[in-house]
């Protein structure tokens, strides 16, 4: 495995009024890795996600990303979410946030837009260049739908899909932005064991085919232990442990804070 850094979080703190949601977090992510963050509810996992993706501006600390293709390193805290997405990090949401009254295909096309150039004038003129770009967006989006096995539902409204399908569509939409790091906020939440197994296969396939890194938050231990190569454990806004799944399972601190039992 290569060891290029893609995301470096240094001393990251986030305070909401008097509440210390994140306390001096230091985490480094490497290229093509599957990493999981676990921790009890309210440990600050989603806050960390929101800081990385630009929804919150962190109180202290720095976040750097390094594009694995160009090797350019930049500081991203304080940038708007849409800029950060363009730089190569995409996310899914804990509670599904699809464009409900748009078709499945259109949902994915929106993700692809951030790499398209067409503006208002070209939308009105519709030159050959714009039409080609449009055709390319449609083609790429359909390819992604094939990957997540949703191509038969492409003209269905997103709101009419079942829960498991909606989760998959969200992943396809995030992939459409061509990320090098995909952040998944509780992808397996609310799924039955069959759906979880399918999701696991899908994520493994994505990692294998697209060579991107995955960052997961989840509570499903079976899912996490099976999929991830490295795990970070958080509690009360602090990172309390990190290591391989085997190490984490044996770590007494983690067992005390979160697992509470042997699995």
């Amino acid at each position: 495995m290569s060891h290029n850094k893609i995301l470096e979080i240094q001393n990251l703190s986030m305070e909401f009024g008097g509440l210390q949601a994140l306390d001096s977090i230091n985490i480094t992510f490497y290229e093509k890795e599957v990493v999981a963050i676990i921790g009890p509810n309210g440990a600050g996992k989603t806050t960390l996600f929101n800081c990385i993706t630009g929804v919150y501006v962190p109180t202290r600390g720095n976040i750097f990303i390094q594009n694995p293709y160009t090797q350019m390193k930049e500081k991203i805290n304080g940038l708007k979410p849409n800029i950060i997405t363009r730089k190569g990090m995409a996310r899914t949401f804990q509670n599904i946030r699809l464009f409900k009254n748009m078709t499945v295909l259109e949902n994915v096309m929106i993700g692809r837009h951030c790499h398209a150039k067409a503006g208002i004038i070209s939308a009105m003129v519709r030159s050959k260049k714009t039409r080609d770009e449009e055709a390319r967006i449609i083609h790429d989006s359909r390819e992604l739908l094939k990957k997540v096995n949703l191509v038969d539902e492409q003209y269905e409204y997103a709101k009419n899909l079942s829960y498991g399908y909606q989760k998959r569509l969200e992943i396809a939409r995030a992939l459409a932005t061509k990320p090098f790091l995909l952040l998944l906020d509780e992808p397996a939440a609310g799924m039955n064991s069959k759906e979880t197994a399918e999701l696991m296969d899908l994520l493994k396939e994505i990692k294998k085919d697209l060579h991107i890194a995955l960052l997961l938050i989840d509570h499903d231990m079976h899912f996490i232990m099976n999929l991830s190569e490295k795990i970070f454990v958080m509690d009360y806004g602090k990172k309390i442990a990190e290591g391989t799944p085997e190490e984490i399972q044996k770590n007494p601190l983690v067992i005390k804070a979160y697992l509470g039992e042997n699995i």
């Binding site: 993706t53 995409a90 464009f99 748009m102 929106i110 939308a123």
Partner: peptide, 19 residues
């Protein structure tokens, strides 16, 4: 067009749109 779909996406969900 691209801009039209973005308008509709904005109508549906602003946070997801930015993401």
């Amino acid at each position: 067009s691209k801009i039209g779909r973005e308008w509709q996406a904005l109508r549906e969900d602003e946070i997801a749109c930015e993401a």
